[in-house]
Nucleic acid binder design. Sequence first.
DNA 1: CGTGAACTTGAGATTTCTCAAGCGGGGTGG
DNA 2: CCACCCCGCTTGAGAAATCTCAAGTTCACG
Lengths: 244, 244
Amino acid sequence: MATLQTYAALSAHERVAVQAIVGAPRPVGAEGEIVGEGEFSADCHVLLEGQAFRHKTLADGRRQILGFLVPGDVVDLQRLYLGVDYGVTALTPCQVATAPRAKLEDLLLQHSGLARAFWSLVLIEASIQRAWMLGMGRRTARARVAHLLCEVFLRLREAGLARGNRCGFPITQNHLADALGLSGVHTNRVLQALRSEGLIALRARELVILDWPGLEEAAEFDPAYLYLHLPFAENPATPPIAIP
Amino acid sequence: MATLQTYAALSAHERVAVQAIVGAPRPVGAEGEIVGEGEFSADCHVLLEGQAFRHKTLADGRRQILGFLVPGDVVDLQRLYLGVDYGVTALTPCQVATAPRAKLEDLLLQHSGLARAFWSLVLIEASIQRAWMLGMGRRTARARVAHLLCEVFLRLREAGLARGNRCGFPITQNHLADALGLSGVHTNRVLQALRSEGLIALRARELVILDWPGLEEAAEFDPAYLYLHLPFAENPATPPIAIP
DNA sequence: CGTGAACTTGAGATTTCTCAAGCGGGGTGG
DNA sequence: CCACCCCGCTTGAGAAATCTCAAGTTCACG
C-alpha cells in the first residue's frame, strides 16, 4: 500500500477499497515457494514483508532469476489477464497478501487512481527488465555485478530496509550469478575485486556501500529506470565510517 | 486495431472511440528513428505497417536490442504514465500512428474492453522480455539464435507477414547479435551451423523455416510466452518444398 | 564441537570476442 | 546496360572472458 501510494495519490476511498479485497497475510518461510513456476491461482499476491525473487528454469535445470522483490511489490500482477510463466521464491521469511483477481480487476476499472498506480507498477517492472537485458547482453561481468548491487541497494532503501549505507542482503552469490547470467565462481571473483577496490563490503548477509560514486561508475549506473520517488537525498551518502 | 482485438473483444463503440483519437499515420523510412532514445512526446505511437526494433545504448556505443516490433504493436505504451527510456528504429519503411497520451488514458478509464486489451499488451511485452532474459542469461548461443528465429517467425506470421514457411526478414545478422548479446561474427557462425543442419534458409532478407520441429528443439522453444491467438495450425507446416 | 551451506581458490577447458581481411550481390549512376 | 561501390556477410586466427570441475575453508547455527 505504501508502495502503491508512491505512484499515484490514492483517495481515502481507494485505500479502503483495496483493503476490502485483500485477504489475510500468509507467512512463507525462507526458501519457500510463494508462487510455483506456472502455477494457477485465482488470486494476485502482494509481498508485504520479506524479500523474494522471480525465476524461470530451463529443462536441464539452469535457472535464470528475473527480478528481486521487496516489500510492497506485487508478486504476480501478470495474473490480472494472463497466467504466470515464472516462479517466485522467498529469500527471507515473508508475509504475502492475496487479492482475488476478479475483484482486483473491478477495482482498477472503478478507481482511476488505482488504475494509474498499478499501471505504473507494471511499466516500471518492464523498465527494470529492460535494464537487466542491457546488462546481460552488453555489460562486462564487473559492471553487471556492480549494477545489480546498486539497484538492489536503492530498492531496499526505498522500501525502508537500509540504514545509512548498509542493508540486509539475503541474496547469495549463486543468486547473483543466476540473476546476472554468470557462473557462481566468476561472480565470486568479481565480488572480490569490488571488495579489494574498496567499493563494497559484503559478508554475513549484509551489504555495505563503501564508495557509492565508485560503485556507480563501475556499473555505469543511472537510477532513472527505477523511477524511485526518493524522499531522501539523490545518492546514498558515502559515510565517513571506517571499514569494520 | 487488428492486434488489439486479438486480446479482448472490442465493442463497435470502442473501436470508433480509438479511431477518434488516432492522428494521421506518419511514414518513417527504413533505418529511420521512430522514437529517439529518451525523447519526450505527448503522444503514444502504434506501428501500423513495417517492422522496427526497440534498443538501448551504452556510453561506449554497445547497443542492446530489447525487442522487435511488428504491425499492430504499440511502440511506446510506457509513455502512458512514465517517460520512455529506449529508442525505436525502423527496419523497413513504416507507417506510425499517434494517439495523444492524455486522450488514450481517458479512453482506458472509460472503456473496460480497451483497458483489458492494453493491459494484455504490456503484460505480454513483459513476458517476452522475461523470455529474452532467460535466453541471454542461460541459453547457449545456438539455442538463443534458434529461439529468436522461432519467435520472430511466429510473430510475423501472426501479423500476416508469412507465406507458409517463409517470411520477409529485414533483420541483419548484426541486429540479431545486438538482440542476443552476441558478437556479429559469432552470430554468423551459429547461423551457418543452423543452415548446414538444414533447419533454416536465410538469405536476401528472407527467412525460410526448413525444419520447424528441429528448430524448436534446438531452441527449446515453447511459444506459450507469446500468448499468440493462433487462428492457424499450432505449428507452421514443415512443407515438402525443395531447398531452392 | 559437529555440520552444512556458502564462499574461496586453483587450473585447465570452452565459448565467445576482436581484429583484420576478403567476398558478393544488388542498386545505382554514368 | 554495365561497371562500380557499399553494406552485409564470411572466414581465419589469436586473445580474452568466462565456465567447469574439484578441493578446500569459513562461519553461522544447532
